[in-house]
């Protein structure tokens, strides 16, 4: 599996070389490439139209907010837009990640490449406030009508900001600030777990041997 994906990684890098030099990582039998947001649509088009790659389906598009990430890798940007693509024709997958600006996360929409991307981008906009320029209909999708904020941002409280109830006097539903407090039963902990360190180091070593274009390692 990893062997196949490191070969695919070379293929992808060579194909995209005329647009830009991409960083590629193979981990857990999955290929991840990082591309710049300016060339995203062109790259997606190439990934779809090249017959050897033929990524004909957008399986998933989501945003990630890295602002409280505590792992060993340091991420410079706060937001990333992540695309999971599948080639039904050739039976392989790829993950494309593009980093966005911190204060105004915006990237070109890929709806013109895969029309299935439409709702995924609406969802990422709703949940993380990532703007997809050129999207035909960038409305909120999952949250309430008139909702304020982007729930999956790390600075959005888990309990939310407003709660809703029926007011008998006004005879309508009203919104009020939340009265419940956030409660943490099990704290978030990162332990030094050396069991995995060794195993992962071995893998990374093996990975960088067969693909020369290894991204920055942990």
């Amino acid at each position: 599996m990893s062997q196949y994906y490191s070969e695919l990684s070379d293929k992808v890098i060579n194909t995209l070389a005329e647009i830009e030099t991409v960083k590629a990582v193979v981990a857990h039998g999955e290929l991840t490439i990082e591309v710049s947001k300016e060339n995203l649509v062109r790259i997606c088009q190439t990934l779809r139209d090249n017959q050897e790659l033929a990524f004909d389906t957008a399986i998933d598009i989501c945003g990630v907010d890295y602002s409280t990430y505590e792992g060993s890798k340091a991420y410079t940007s706060r937001y990333a837009s992540v695309y999971h693509l599948l080639s039904v024709k050739n039976n392989h997958r790829i993950r494309v990640r593009t980093w966005l600006d911190d204060d105004f996360p915006m990237v070109d929409s890929v709806v013109s490449v895969w029309s299935g991307a439409n709702w995924f981008e609406r969802e990422a906009f709703d949940m993380l406030g990532i703007l997809y320029s050129g999207h035909p209909d960038l409305r909120r999708i999952l949250t309430d009508y008139g909702f304020i904020g982007h729930p999956l941002r790390k600075d959005f409280p888990l309990v939310g900001q407003v709660e809703m109830r029926y007011d008998a006097n006004k005879q309508r539903v009203i919104y009020e600030p939340v009265t419940i407090e956030e409660r943490v039963n099990i704290p978030r902990i990162i332990r030094d777990d050396n069991r995995y360190a060794e195993r992962l180091a071995d893998k990374e070593q093996a990975g960088s041997d067969d693909s020369k274009s290894q991204g920055e390692s942990a």
Binding site: I59, D60, C62, V64, D65, Y69, E70, G71, S72, V82, H84, L152, I186, R188, I189, I190, R191, D193
Partner: peptide, 19 residues
């Protein structure tokens, strides 16, 4: 049906995306 998990090594997922 897929799940995409980003882990930073903690006992809780950093990000879980459900496809």
């Amino acid at each position: 049906f897929g799940t995409y998990i980003v882990s930073d090594g903690a006992n809780k997922p950093y990000r879980l995306k459900i496809r």
